[in-house]
Simulated assay, not measured.
Amino acid sequence: MASLSEHLSQKWRKFFQFFDINKDGRWTRDDFEKFADRLVIQADSMLTEIGACHVRRHCQHWLSIHEEQLCGTGVGEITEQVICDTMARLLLLNNNNAGCQIKELDIFSEVWFEILDINRDGRISEGDMWILYKCMGVKNLTKVGELFRELDLDSDHHLTREEVRVGYRQYFFGEQRQDFQSVALLFDLAGLQQGGAVCVT
């Protein structure tokens, strides 16, 4: 089994901890139901009942992609180590096939786009991204803006599906420490703010 560098391992562990809502070292359906609840509460003025169902459905789909297609666990939960082992496998695949399309990761980024597209207009605004991080307790608007501008490759103030796909590949598989430092900082801020149940204001 290939292994991730310390730098990449740290990125994935931060990512895992960001969505481990219950802070029990596992991703379960309950974590993603709570995550969906927070998104719906924060986006309340932008969501119809159908839109809220859309968010909840895609949050659960996102977990199932990790569980069934990425990790192959099929046990209803995913641990931090399983995520790191899975990403090491995908990284090896990517390195051995220069320029290859990693189908699993692209499916993941597609569902992630659907979750972030709060008002379902086919693109992600900075406001959409702000809702995501605010629901996780982050209150640093500057860092959210920095992340958005890093992802917005054509500087048109909206993110396309392709920009999200490219951004996530670059962040999670890029060895450059300066790549998307704002993401790591936001994950850290969310972890500091959560510490258990989050009261979002």
Score class of each variant (00 low, 15 high):
A52S: 04
I102C: 11
V164E: 02
E67R: 01
S3T: 12
K11I: 14
T48Y: 11
D24T: 08
L105Y: 11
K103P: 07
W12S: 03
R38A: 09
T86H: 01
E67T: 03
L147V: 08
A190K: 07
W62G: 05
N140K: 00
V144P: 11
R56Y: 10
V55Q: 11
G76H: 04
V144Y: 02
S64V: 03
T201E: 13
E175P: 04
C53S: 09
R13V: 04
W27S: 07
Q10R: 11
I65A: 01
N96L: 15
I78G: 05
G25M: 02
R26Q: 15
L151P: 00
G167D: 12
N95R: 15
E110T: 05
C84H: 02
F16T: 10
E67N: 06
L92M: 12
F113W: 04
I21R: 01
Q81R: 14
C53F: 14
R26Y: 15
L189Y: 10
A36G: 14
L159C: 04
G174L: 03
L39C: 01
V82E: 12
V82P: 00
E33M: 10
N97R: 09
L4D: 05
F18G: 06
D44E: 10
E146W: 03
F180E: 07
V40S: 10
V40I: 15
I21L: 10
V75N: 15
E80T: 00
H157G: 10
Q178F: 14
F187T: 06
R120I: 13
R165H: 13
Q42N: 03
G174C: 05
R123W: 07
R38K: 03
L189V: 13
R123V: 01
V111N: 07
S3N: 11
W62Q: 04
F187H: 07
H54T: 11
V55N: 00
L132E: 12
F148I: 13
V111I: 05
V75A: 13
I131P: 00
F173E: 06
D44T: 06
I78P: 08
R149L: 15
K14R: 14
L147D: 08
F173M: 09
L93V: 01
F19M: 01
I102L: 10
F172L: 10
C199Y: 11
D188N: 15
F16D: 09
Q10M: 13
S5H: 11
I65P: 00
R177D: 13
R89F: 04
F18P: 02
G145P: 02
A52Y: 07
